[in-house]
Design a protein around this nucleic acid. Structure first.
Lengths: 218, 218
DNA sequence: GGCGCGACTACATAATGATGTGAGATGAAT
DNA sequence: ATTCATCTCACATCATTATGTAGTCGCGCC
């Protein structure tokens, strides 16, 4: 392993590109091999500049960072690509990870942490902001194949299942009360219980869970 | 939000349990509510001790940490569970994450880092050793089932489908606005259009229709 | 080069939902 | 005989959603 780490930057904002460049140029053990405004030629850039680590802005005109990431990984999967973004949006994170990102940091990350991150990714780590790390863990179960043994009616009582069924049909509290001839406060009460048992906090979550896990009696 | 974080330890090795206990007892902002040698009674323990954070050894006789984790998440998904392990084996990591672990540290983690981790997980982060973080990212693409491209969408624009997808995930207007970095009024506006197109009048109806007819793209 | 459409923002009002606290009545279970 | 879950109802308060009206901006279309 060579002693210096060759770093390449993709960042469309010229100011940020400059400051990143300065940060990296002055860092021991690092060599900045380029700072490019778009990733249209990513593949060619890889061959020409042979970076070890790429810092990739995720929002770029012309060719998004995600697309750039794909291109890089297609020709050189061993290059470590750390994505930089302003927001921690769910889909972006997801897409980036599926495309093989090796790290995911916010742009507001401190310079020190950024330099750390480059070392970390070189050492086989995956630098991420805490919030993103958490998102990744949350995303994981969703990306998995269907749950095999799903039976549990989640301990819903018959009445509760019935009311959940009505929610799924799109009934409002008022409509349920009218339909079943009970007070709207009773409906509230049942729904509160349902929320507790399903661990949800809104009608939509309850409906979604009910449909996905077949909790109604139809 | 209480100012102290209630921490519970599961660790079968008595020596380690003692030293962990001592570490946590002396930490400001933390309250050690228990240090237990097995997780057989995990559910009861949760109700009795009401921890905010659980440190769970992954290798325990009788009932593995993974099983304990499952039990905890089944009754109290909001409790943050950080797994502790000696080795970073692929399968264990995978299972733990699928079971809903909120963090994953090696036992050789320094005391300071461990205390950090508790704060981090409380703040919505996911403390992981770098190598494990990388493993998680590597695991991700493999866990993806490919879905057959389905085309039904009731004339919903891409953006509308996207937002409908978030509704299905249980997002509120506010959460969608934050997630997509748009104003809440824009969310309203999109949802109004969705309602028109789907001929519904509430979130639950929209969610129900979306799930039944496969209108989202995820 | 005007037109329609999609994405975006804003403000206002009424309706509905979320959450807490409390409580009576019933029947099953220990 | 007492506990326990369920079903029922009530009141209160705050948050969120539903709906209408209205306007800007950019883009493809004819």
């Amino acid at each position: 392993m060579p002693t210096v780490t060759r770093v390449l930057i993709y960042e469309d904002n010229a100011d940020l590109r400059t400051s990143l460049s300065q940060l990296l140029s002055g860092a021991p053990g690092l060599e900045l091999v380029g700072a490019i405004g778009n990733c249209m030629q990513a593949q060619a850039d890889m061959e020409r500049l042979r970076p070890d680590v790429v810092l990739m802005d995720i929002d770029m005109p012309g060719c998004t960072g995600i697309e750039g990431l794909r291109r890089i990984k297609a020709v050189a999967p061993d290059i470590n690509v750390v994505m930089l973004t302003v927001f921690e949006e769910n889909d972006r994170v997801f897409d980036a990870i599926c495309a093989g990102a090796d790290g995911y940091l916010l742009k507001k990350t401190s310079p020190v942490r950024l330099l750390d991150a480059i070392g970390e990714v070189r050492a086989g780590g995956a630098p991420m902001t805490p919030a993103i790390a958490r998102q990744v863990l949350r995303l994981f179960p969703k990306a998995l194949p269907r749950r095999p043994a799903e039976e549990s009616h989640a301990n819903l009582s018959a009445r509760e299942q019935e009311i959940l069924g009505l929610l799924v049909e799109g009934y409002s509290y008022k409509m349920i009360a009218a339909d079943r001839s009970i007070s709207i406060d009773t409906v509230r009460s049942h729904i509160k219980k349902i929320y507790e048992k399903l661990h949800v906090r809104s009608m939509t979550e309850a409906v979604s869970k009910a449909l996905r896990e077949g909790l109604t009696k139809s």
